[in-house]
Amino acid sequence: MIPLGYYIGLSAILFTIGVVGVLTLRNAIVIFMSVELMLNSVNLSLIAFSAYSGNPAGQILVFFVIAVAAAESAVGLAIIIALFRNKLTVNIDEVNILKW
C-alpha cells in the first residue's frame, strides 16, 4: 500500500520544478512546457485524492483540466509563432515592449 502522502509529495516536487523552470528559463516554448509540467503535477494530486476518497469528481476535474490545457497550448503556441514573426526570437528577455 502506498500512503497518500507519497503522491502529494511527488506532486509538490514536480510543481516546484515547474515553478523554477518558469522563473529561470528564457526560451518561451520551454517556459510553456514547464507550465504543462505544473498542470500535470496538480492532476496527479487530484487523481490521488479521488482514488483515496472514492469520489469520481476528482477524475472529472482532471478531464476538464486536460481539455483546457489542450486549448491553452493551441492558443499559446499560436502567440509564440506570432511573436517569432515579429521579433525573430523566442527569448523573453528581448520581448519587453510592455515593460516600463
Binding site: M1, G5, A12, T16, V19, V20, L23, Y52, S53
Partner: peptide, 27 residues
C-alpha cells in the same frame, strides 16, 4: 528564482510531512 523555488518546496513539504493519514485506497 531558485531560492524562491526551494522556499516554495519547504512550505509545501511542511504540510505534506504533517499529512500522516494512514488510510489505504478507497474500496
Amino acid at each position: 528564482s531558485v531560492l524562491l523555488g526551494i522556499a516554495l518546496l519547504v512550505e509545501v513539504s511542511y504540510f505534506v510531512l504533517h499529512f500522516t493519514s494512514t488510510e489505504g485506497m478507497s474500496p
